[in-house]
């Protein structure tokens, strides 16, 4: 199992119950992480979109995660 620290912003902060959470998953890609998050927090599936950022950049599903990565949930942005 791999343990990752996840930052949550906007509505995901409310859905996950805080600014930060830890999650343990079998895999080691963004896609694995997304599947695990959707299982643990099915409300995430109700969002219009959900990107996952790794080290301050939008990440594709096949990106490999490392322990030291900064991982964040990016629900639909609404700045301006």
């Amino acid at each position: 199992m791999n343990k990752y620290r996840i930052k949550a912003f906007g509505i995901t902060k409310d859905l996950l119950g805080g600014r930060e959470t830890f999650i343990e998953i079998e895999g080691h890609t963004v896609g694995h992480l997304r599947a695990a998050l959707n299982e643990r927090y099915p409300q995430l599936l109700g969002l219009r979109s959900l990107f996952i950022a790794v080290n301050n950049d939008y990440a594709d599903e096949n990106i490999q995660l490392n322990d030291a990565d900064e991982i964040a949930l990016i629900p639909p942005v609404s700045g301006g």
Binding site: G10, I11, A53, I74, V77, S78, G79, G80
Partner: peptide, 14 residues
Amino acid sequence: IIDSVKSVAPIWKK
């Protein structure tokens, strides 16, 4: 720039 900031920058409003 403003269009891109609104669609890409991770900023949220409630």
